[in-house]
Write a protein that binds this DNA or RNA. Sequence first.
RNA 1: GCCGCAGUGGCGGAACAGGCAGACGCACAGGACUUAAAAUCCUGCGAGGGUUAAACUUCGUACGGGUUCGAUUCCCGUCUGCGGCACCA
Length: 806
Amino acid sequence: MAVPYNHRAIEAKWRTHWAEKPVNTNDGKKPKYYCLDMFPYPSGNGLHVGHWRGYVISDVWSRYKLLQGYYLIHPMGWDAFGLPAENYAIKHGVHPAISTEDNIRNIKKQINDISAIYDWDMEVNTTDPGFYKWTQWIFVQMFKHGLAYEKEFPINWCPSCKTGLANEEVVNGVCERCGSPVTKKNLRQWMLRITRYADRLLNDLDKLDWPEKVKKMQTDWIGKSYGAEVEFPIDGREEKITVYTTRPDTLFGATFMVLAPEHTLAKSLATDETREQVEKYIFDASMKSNVDRMQDKEKTGVFTGSYAINPLNQEKIPIWLSDYVLADYGTGAIMCVPAHDDRDFAFAKKFGLPIVQVIAKDGKEIEDMTEAYTEAVGTMINSGEWNGRESADLKVEAPAYIEEKGFGKKTVNFKLRDWVFSRQRYWGEPIPIIHCPKCGNVPVPEEQLPLMLPEVESYQPTGTGESPLAAIDEWVNTTCPCCGSPAKRETNTMPQWAGSSWYFLRYVDSKNDEELVSREKADKYLPVDMYIGGVEHAVLHLLYSRFYTKFLHDIGVVDFEEPFAKLFNQGMITGKNGIKMSKSKGNVVSPDDLVRDYGCDSLRMYELFVGPPELDAEWDDRGIDGVSRFLKRFWTLAQNSLEKNPPARDEVVRVRHRMVREITRRLESFSLNTVISGFMEYTNKLIDLAKDSDGAVDKETIETAAILLAPFAPHISEEIWEMAGHEDSIFHSSWPVHDEEAMKDDEIEIPVQVNGKKKAVIQVAADISKEDVIAAAKAAVKDKISGSIVKEIYVPKKTVNLVVKG
RNA sequence: GCCGCAGUGGCGGAACAGGCAGACGCACAGGACUUAAAAUCCUGCGAGGGUUAAACUUCGUACGGGUUCGAUUCCCGUCUGCGGCACCA
């Protein structure tokens, strides 16, 4: 007799069974499919329902691929270097390695509750010396190829974390991690020359099946622009000032020039009359933080007393200093065309500088300009030999013209800057460089890697620009591998991104001591086919990984240039009112209780049912009852049906094939929330049909439905599959295919519209002719038509519309 | 400021390619079963008008226009919310 659905017993049974007999096996013949989750930071807070969502999405996709006959690469690991573990160590004196290990153990247990088919043999941990050996090895290769270099300059500095930051880690002027305002600090830094890859990083975006939003964010971040560098001679001096402009067409309108206060010539341009003010301005600017500089929209500036010559018309134009010009973009100096640039206009107005319009707006010169005309549309005026030409054409042609005349050259510019790669903290990979007074910077010999992170007495960051490692004399003092002289080790560590920039390559060969990854395995199992994670890494991890992969390609480690063929960004699960779940807000929902009360299968389905997977969703526990009831209904139907197994009826078979088609279509388009509603919809239909045959449908229909359901609710599906008499796992069956013929109904419903408004629905034969269907439609609505029919429209199998006049 | 995305019942959301708006679920209400409750099952559930009840009917996908036989879907404009960038010359 019917056994009630007992999720606890069923789930425990299959979890054990799958652990003993894994369903994902590599016979060497199946094609591979690499489905990757962004690996988590093993936080002490454990997982909440939001983390679950991402892992469920990737597991559903993985199991679907399994059923399509692929050998799955579906690994999991730990991005375990980073500040929380270190801060915990500072507070409680527990070594980060120990707390990290505890956290991993705990989260692993929670991940186990998801019943995802991770291959734990591949597990990696970025803090494992066997792993960071290769993180360091990559750095050494970059050093040898001139991509890693040292530089001293004012970098972004977080005074709270007491470390330098990359540009990508500064969000609206504050530290991405802790929210403190970022200041500038002059520091000796290790840099990675990511800018050398700017063009390739930009161009190869075209090859990627990624959300457009992410591609656009990377495009904007790389920020390529086309223009010209123009040299302006300084009146009465030998030097020239080079500016970068994207609007060389407006060159005749340049009425002054502005240099960043940090520009190398800034000080020397001052005259005796202006020196005091100029030096004060430069000093004040150096004291401003990023936040101040961004908040002060009001322009400030100072006249240097010097003049430049506009090379095109020989006009003398004043040279000013202002902090609205950025020192590290372009050349740190600009030509100013107030008539055609908003910022220059504001500056000219404030300091009473001349404004010369060079592009006619709507065919004329504007009398009293109240705002800049910034579009490159219109005829040139006040522009010497360019008068009468179109601005849009000149914008393209002017760079070549300028180059020809010897005033400058055609050029491109990027917003992307080199990557500030050193951190002044303890819990990271030591940078494997030795500073030798004779040989300069020498990499730690590769056979000595990994360079182990030593034990320290105090994890406290020093704030001096050195990491806590600097306090360990016996570690710092070493000998030069080149010449044997006394030398000192680099004491900075790498940023957290170092390990995550390449970890996905390591999974497929995680225990290899000789190589980062063997070329054979890399060729066979890489790159990643599907990458699933949050959108917050759009310009951080995802850009860095692309850079690393391209470099590793260039030195022959791997054969491909892009690490992630397809990317899916899942939305965040929030608490009530869209508030991000956090311990401090007290709105964290743990999956643990829900798994206990409703079961893994129900929670997996509910995680998907809350809304479109790419959008954020507010968590509401109550909704889980809906999927839980669905699973019970399906269970009862399956049990009944397998017991009674009535003969297959046409109408049931039709529903079965429609279900296969719909579920597959929705799954393929990643509309996972509607896959779940589809299961409910079609199961309800089956239950309805089953009422005519003792509450049962044929066995094949149940088996088909179970396979469709298997990626979503693997335990109950496997149990039903077994009940149906199968000895092998349901995951060794294959994804069903629908049959168009078997789906067809003899009769279809056609809505009848009059002037576009539905007035009736008629039941007609599926193969009815246009004439017949229109005749039937007319008959159905004849009472509702007052005038005469002027037009008849029949959209086959969809609708009839009768256009009536009078 | 610039760029991108979104706006549909009490709520989450659905509608493939311009063709029955509100699937599926939650919540709610009524009923069946039960001594009772839970569970389960059945019914209803956008707003207004209409009727004893129905039939029927008008409006309705942020707002205002447009294209079309027909618009949640396409186009133009406006508003609101979210995200990204933010003096990038």
